[in-house]
Design a binder for these strands. Structure first.
Length: 419
DNA sequence: TCTGGGGTCCTAGGACCC
DNA sequence: TCTGGGGTCCTAGGACCC
């Protein structure tokens, strides 16, 4: 038995916790650079603002309906998420944090409990302790728990935001209700293909032949069908070290100068190196990419990436920055206006598993140096110690015009209460 | 004239998720 | 003027092995 607890409109709800006057008001949260809408309160959804809407196209709508607009405040959302998850993990010996706002709990063996009541108590505690509203789905498989969660969110009234799919009748009723594209694991492509052969609801999908699914959707599709039929094929998963780590950003303006792009690539490589050290891994290869703005079709378009194998595994910011900027020289073409770039590291291995001879070419002094840098930056603030190839004058700045305070992670931003 | 039958590893691309 | 930033897994095909 699985429960899926999902925070309602998570980013918007986080902003609301510290601004209760915004309850029942439309709220949207924008992506980095204030580019597009990545979260909406129910009121904003009701205004017809779609997910991913470009902010500039909706300025008029925002003004007209007095929508409260926020720049993404990931420091706040990450910390609020940690608080919510800490509470929910107490409700089961086995859990899986699936995303920043979702957690699966294994409820096997808890049949003695009234699971509906159990879910309501979780919801109430999270609400009371953090101010974040949640919805809860409970069923025999993770995919059905996802379906149940959707029902809980859609029909808060009878369900009290907690819905269970236990009997076969409940399962069939739920699957006859849910649209095929809303099922976890069915994306745009598969939904389109399924609709062309007359499959519109979750239930229709469970009636398809295994041969058809295997042929058109692979083993993933077969597993999904089993899940919807009530046979679990997905278990609770434990956190594993990442297999790839990326740092990519859009620029606030267009860059034509190679030095400006070089500085960004260097900074992204430093960021990847930091993330590598945090999970105690080194990378063996690196990809960098640059591209011009895809939406501005009147500009000359150019987009390229390059993948290089490193001569030895590393998590040194100095080395990764050098490899990344060397790679940039191979793909950078003058005469284009660049909008976005990124660094991705792959083939990650544990830092303790390095073979001795692999160290031959690398500078061993980087290891204590990086440790010292990490320590200083942790003590006195991120990015206080940087490479000379990074933006020392701090020219680069992300567009974040509507950033809320970091209420829970910065002493200066803690709210003041007058009594 | 006629040329087997297994494997593994790597990569790019496609699908999906939040 | 202006459109985010992360991840995962699977598959097919090519290169290589004996």
């Amino acid at each position: 038995m699985f429960a899926l607890i999902d925070c309602n409109n998570f980013y918007a709800s986080c902003e609301r916790v510290f601004r209760p006057e915004l309850n029942h008001q439309p709220i949207v949260v924008l992506s980095n650079n204030d580019g597009c809408v990545i979260a909406r309160s129910n009121e904003a959804k009701a205004l017809g603002i779609p997910m991913g809407a470009p902010a500039f196209e909706y300025q008029k709508c925002f003004r007209q309906h007095q929508v409260h607009v926020f720049s993404a405040n990931f420091a706040l959302y990450g910390d609020m998420s940690r608080r919510v998850m800490n509470i929910l993990e107490e409700y089961s010996p086995e859990s899986e944090i699936y995303s920043i706002d979702e957690i699966f709990l294994n409820l096997s063996g808890m049949d003695a409990y009234n699971l509906h009541e159990y879910g309501i108590s979780m919801r109430e505690k999270v609400w009371k302790w953090t101010g974040i509203p949640t919805s809860i789905g409970i069923a025999h498989t993770k995919t059905l728990a996802k379906v149940a969660n959707r029902i809980a969110k859609k029909f808060p009234d009878p369900t009290k935001n907690v819905h269970l799919i236990l009997s076969n009748e409940q399962r069939i009723k739920a699957l006859k209700w849910i649209d095929i594209q809303d099922i976890w694991g069915i994306g745009k492509q598969h939904a389109h293909r399924l609709k062309t052969i007359g499959i519109h609801k979750g239930y229709d999908f469970t009636q398809l032949s295994a041969e058809w699914i295997r042929k058109n959707m692979g083993v993933v599709g077969l597993r999904l069908q089993q899940e919807l039929l009530g046979t679990p094929t997905l278990a609770i998963e434990y956190p594993k070290p990442r297999k790839n780590i990326a740092t990519t950003r859009s620029f606030e303006t267009l860059y034509t100068d190679i030095d400006a792009v070089k500085e960004r690539i260097s900074a992204f490589a430093v960021s990847c190196a930091e993330k590598l050290r945090k999970q105690h891994t080194c990378c063996l290869s690196i990809t960098i990419f640059i591209c011009t703005p895809q939406h501005q079709t009147h500009l000359p378009q150019y987009s390229r990436s390059i993948h290089i194998k490193l001569p030895y595994p590393t998590h040194s910011a100095i080395e990764l920055s050098q490899f990344a900027t060397q790679a940039l020289l191979k793909i950078f073409k003058p005469g284009y206006a660049y909008k976005k770039a990124g660094v991705i590291v792959h083939n990650l291995i544990n830092e303790n598993q390095l073979q001795k001879k692999l160290f031959e070419n690398r500078n061993e002094q980087h290891i204590p140096l990086m440790q010292a840098i990490d320590k200083i930056n942790q003590m006195i603030g991120q990015q206080k110690v940087r490479l000379a190839s990074q933006d020392l004058k701090q020219v680069w700045k992300m567009k974040q015009e509507k950033l809320s305070p970091r209420y829970t992670t910065r002493l200066e931003d803690i709210i003041t209460i007058y009594c």
